[in-house]
Design a protein around this nucleic acid. Structure first.
Lengths: 119, 119
DNA sequence: TAACTGTACTATTTGTGATGGTACACTTAA
DNA sequence: TTAAGTGTACCATCACAAATAGTACAGTTA
């Protein structure tokens, strides 16, 4: 379900956060579905439970999951999260687009690239 | 010429690398133009010369500048760098585009955003 | 009650970024 | 020839974040 890339320079907890955000936004994890427990996921990934705890705390801070003491962590069903992520992506895309246009690419070429994109 | 953003979480040397890459790619720094010396730039930015040295070493590794012992660092005139940067940007853009399309945006909407972009 | 859950600590290790300082080889201009 | 400026290569040190290791406690559930 989650794979850690040790070649990735980003910290482990950040990779875990990203992976779960993607799974939730894509609907692979449904609203109110239970997340793997801190201890079991740590065991599965062969890392420390504290690292998962840190990732879950961050996911909760960002509104992707909610915690219930003694029961577990669960996926939040907040629909606004998708919209927020869309905005983030668009911002980044436009920033990169601005740069690539500044160094000589045309809007036509860029748009052509996107049109040809397979999803 | 170069400004360090201490709110930026990225390391200083990385910011310096990025800034110079942009200046070179945009032609603000011409081929064979002399870079500020390690010591003078460090003085100007109130940081350690070793940090600038690290940034310059990275810029040289990536082919943006070349060093001449005793004389200084100079901008490389390699035209392929612009093409390489374009490819990098496109890759990132397509990656983000793929994500934003997967979570519900349409190609039309995305292309519209780029069309409206002011450069 | 036992086994699971989250949570909160503390201590420690590790790696990277950054600093401070020294030294040496090279180039250039006085 | 000399002095000042260049890059470069070290070393020691500090600061900080990431990650580990371990313990403890409170809540839930079968």
């Amino acid at each position: 379900m989650i794979i850690i890339d040790y070649k990735d320079t980003r910290p482990i907890y950040e990779q875990v956060v990203e992976k779960f955000k993607t799974l939730i936004l894509h609907g692979a994890l449904q609203a109110d579905e239970q997340m793997p427990s801190v201890r079991s996921l740590a065991m599965e990934l062969s890392i420390n439970p504290n690292t998962i705890q840190k990732a879950y705390a961050e996911l909760e801070r960002q509104g992707f999951i909610y915690a219930v003491k003694g029961r577990g962590n669960f996926v939040s069903g907040d629909g606004r999260l998708v919209e927020e992520r869309k905005c983030e992506c668009i911002q980044k895309i436009l920033e990169l687009a601005r740069e690539v246009l500044e160094i000589g690419m045309t809007k036509m070429e860029l748009i052509r690239e996107i049109e040809q994109l397979q999803v």
